[in-house]
């Protein structure tokens, strides 16, 4: 287990003076027990500032998805500290944690996870309906949000009637509609071609990222590294180094 160091792992630091959105210190997590025990996180130290787009990269099984799940409060850590805008999920009841996620976190999934029987506008409206907003008002806001991601004319389309890129834009609209402060994305471009991937990333950066928000993206896709403010390279459950995209040789945004 890592010591709770005052400074995160080597290299790039978050922008000076920016408020911290995510703070992880010595976060550990394992799955299974006995011979089947697998250590997924071995003491993660990581800070993400407000207004920052942080990418978590690394080989499969290095703990990226586990870390993003812990940060988003959908997986319990074993030890260490992890706060989101100063709030610690471990200190919350299950119900409070669920409510907190609903209000403050937006999700973009690799497989989009749109409900196939709902229209695009209805899919976008789901987070608002979960928060208790009436269906009609929520769907109206969903249509407005779709217009912001360039899909105003596809509000009545079912996911099966949309291309992969359009589905991911719907998913982004869904992640943003309730004004979350943290947006977590799991491989948002892996199912998309190069050009569409760039469109999606530009949209995430332009529409989702604001000064009071943070964006954490798990990805394998080196083509989009250039969109990150910082990149945390992970391996074997550890953050090996944190660097800026210019130092990675990644494509420029």
């Amino acid at each position: 287990m890592s010591t709770a160091a005052a400074q995160p792992a080597p290299s790039a630091l978050p922008p000076a003076g920016a408020p911290i959105a995510i703070r992880c210190r010595g976060v550990t997590k394992h799955y299974g027990s006995g011979d089947a025990r697998v250590v997924a996180l071995r003491g993660i130290d990581l800070d993400v500032a407000c207004g920052e787009l942080m990418m978590l990269v690394g080989p499969s099984g290095c703990g990226k998805t586990t870390l993003i799940s812990v940060i988003a409060g959908i997986l319990d850590r074993d030890a260490g500290e992890c706060t989101v805008f100063g709030d610690d999920f471990a200190a919350m009841s299950g119900r409070a944690r669920t409510r907190y996620r609903g209000r403050n976190i937006g999700f973009v999934f690799q497989a989009f996870n749109l409900i196939p029987t709902l229209t695009a506008a209805e899919n976008v409206a789901v987070p608002l309906m979960i928060l208790g907003e009436g269906r009609a008002a929520a769907v109206a806001k969903g249509r407005d949000m779709l217009a912001r991601v360039g899909l105003g004319d596809r509000a009545r389309s079912l996911p099966s009637q949309l291309s992969g890129g359009q589905q991911q834009r719907v998913a982004i609209a869904r992640a943003l509609i309730h004004g979350p402060r943290l947006i977590v994305c799991d491989e948002p471009t892996s199912a998309l071609d190069h050009e569409t991937g760039h469109v999606i990333m530009r949209m995430l950066k332009n529409v989702a990222l604001q000064q009071d928000r943070a964006l954490v993206i798990v990805t394998h896709d080196a083509r989009i590294f250039g969109f990150a403010d910082r990149i945390a390279r992970m391996d074997d459950g550890r953050v090996e180094r944190i660097e800026r995209p210019s130092a990675t040789g990644a494509e420029s945004a």
Binding site: T98, R101, G102, F107, A111, I115, V126, P127, I130, L131
Partner: peptide
């Protein structure tokens, strides 16, 4: 199940 998981992640409680 994946959709229920997504709803849970997005803040849908068990009671809902």
């Amino acid at each position: 199940l994946r959709h229920y998981g997504a709803l849970k992640a997005m803040g849908a409680g068990n009671w809902l």
